[in-house]
Design a protein around this nucleic acid. Structure first.
Lengths: 221, 221, 221, 221
DNA sequence: GGGTAACCGAGACGGTACGTCCAGTCTTCGC
DNA sequence: GCGAAGACTGGACGTACCGTCTCGGTTACCC
């Protein structure tokens, strides 16, 4: 089962890289809205068809570029305390935007695109939203195993709260997305954990979904 | 200080209403993306210039229509308990989307537009985001006066958390935005209040911004 | 049979003059194409309705302005010789364009408008084309009475040739419309007169239309 | 020196033909004024951009269509006599309008457009006006070589007179443009030739421009 | 001297065409 | 078969004018 390239010219890695880097560069420098397929093609020295052969829209190109850029980083620290872990994780996430000016705006633009194109919305969720959730979820589950967080805690809700607050500030421009927010959210999660533990003693461990990966059904209907 | 109409033909109220209702109807029925200036004009029986005379984009038209629709509702209940008040408020907010199918998608689309057009972003924040924040802020301040919520609480953060979670679920499609979420968030705020009270006893009442209207500086830098 | 103005506010002479002078001024300065009804109204300090009440189009306004301007001049000299009379008349006509820069271009623009609007074409012919023809026709008829031009001469054709050459040069920009042309055309008419006299002796005075006012039927079908 | 097509998709000949024929058909049937870019695009089944890629205005499209239509015809007869040659040439030219109803109106409309758009005026002169002049000029030069027309004759003036009279009648609607006119103008030119010959004997052969192609300087200043 | 009627300015109205931009597809040649 | 180049259809955009309308207000006459 070797991946025989089959007949014909193989895909050009150079073109692929040129497209991705051009898309990200233009989007960061001039704003995502001034990014057009024609412009990517022109600036990357590439035919438009070559782009359409591998991606369905400029949103997917940008997402791909972003995903590649972010592939390195997702690493969760282990400070021993839940609040500290969360804070460290968020702080690290926010730092990326700091070192890459304009990246946060591109991120917001993609969230905007996800509202217009359902196909892209799925991709966006799978490749950008979910991976982050899983990292934080891992941190929370580790806390559960340590006993810092009761088994009954609604992990999905906590994920939504943490990432929701972050996205809300980015999207609306209300409030900064910085280390202060990382600390605030870390402490909030920490307090919820403590509170949850008391609750778990009071209430006899109501069964909750172990995984928060799909929190679509996490709320009571 | 009457509003003298000035010279010239007065603005047509009929055209204004036709434009707003057409925009909202089309956006809800066929999706915000199939809403075009040409189509609003055609279906409202109106010249395009008449739209551009009073609004700058279809986003502003839709926002105006939405604002008018929402003008009635913002009423905060008073259940006597903070968690109950928050839950009631959110529940009521979510109900609007329930009774107006497609409205949530329009809302998300507008949040998307706000990412592309800074001028619209400002309008969107001022006319849709901030009014909701103020209603919830009033609830929180009432709780502070009742003593249910310590003076030291960071109201801005609480607002961000509550609305952030709601928007995050709407925008990503992860998790429902229903009465379950209203309850969860109400309880979370309630717990934060209790926790804050203990904290306020421990820490000697660090000065915090009284108003959370501008939470832009609410995080420690 | 006095022209009792009847009831109601009388027409504003000030507005009429402002409209005509504005139209001519703008058309001469910025070109006829940058003349719009809105602009006339704005620069003349007049409501658009006031223009439409008295004229049907900007072409008619301009024609009116032009007609008023030209009302003074049409005066035919009498040099005693046909060629001299024609040359003097044309020379005088061309001089008007010389002293009023941009006027020739406006004239050409009106000829252009006459191609698009049949109603205006009639007006244009009656108020600008025909009056000039009649002046020249009078000169020719005077020559006939003097015996300088045979009765059998086709006056209509001569009028067409003289004015046609002038208009052709103005419209195409080929060749100058100046005193040289006036002399050339004067001499040409003079020669035709002489030639016609010989012909009239040879051919036994075929009946020709006395008036060239309507040369529509002047050619043999 | 072959015309290598270069890279990229070659221009669509089908689209080019569809555009030209649609433009001419609509202009002839419904009048040049009801010809719009949108309509050409729609009826030709073509994107608007494709029209704008190759032409600058509907005037240029129509001119191109007209030019293609006229490419066949310009053929000068040789009757042996100057008057006959001119008459034959004009008669043939007028016949084109006869066999293609509405074509004369389109021609007049283009002359009108030339008054509004200097860029088009140049094109119009080069591609429609000048070619006709050159055919007649060739006839006149042939006459000069035969000795029917004196070397001293002002060819430019004769061209202006002949075409000027024709255009004047078309544009103003005064007088027919038919075989009668062709005969009248032929005879007029014939008489001028004879007259010129006498003059050339009297006056000692004043130097005149050999070519009348550019009669811009043909008149004495 | 109060009606009445036609005028006046201002400017919003429905509508048509414009010329541009971009999306997504198609068609050529060359590697 | 992939890739660069670039022309293609299609559709929305935002602007410019047109010719009409609807205000408040003015100016004459005529009873």
């Amino acid at each position: 089962m070797q991946d025989s390239p089959g007949p014909g010219r193989p895909r050009s890695e150079a073109a692929r890289r040129a497209i991705l880097s051009t898309a990200l560069r233009v989007a960061r420098r001039d704003g995502y809205d001034s990014l057009t397929m024609d412009r990517i093609a022109a600036e990357a020295g590439v035919g438009k068809q070559t782009i359409y052969r591998w991606w369905r829209s400029k949103a997917e190109v940008t997402l791909d570029a972003l995903r590649e850029l972010a592939e390195e980083q997702i690493e969760s620290a282990d400070t021993g305390r839940l609040a500290g872990d969360v804070e460290a994780l968020l702080s690290q996430t926010f730092a990326t935007s700091g070192t890459h000016p304009g990246l946060d705006r591109v991120l917001c633009a993609l969230m905007g695109e996800a509202q217009r194109d359902p196909a892209f919305a799925t991709l966006f969720r799978e490749q950008l939203i979910e991976p982050r959730r899983q990292v934080l979820e891992a941190v929370l589950e580790r806390a559960q195993q340590r006993g810092d967080l009761p088994r009954s805690a609604d992990l999905g809700l906590l994920l939504d709260v943490v990432f929701g607050t972050m996205w809300y500030r980015m999207l609306t421009g209300i409030g900064r997305v910085d280390d202060g927010l990382a600390r605030d959210l870390g402490q909030l999660v920490g307090r919820e954990a403590a509170r949850g533990q008391e609750a778990s003693e009071a209430r006899p461990a109501r069964s909750r979904r172990a995984s928060a990966r799909d929190s679509r059904r996490s709320s009571r209907t």
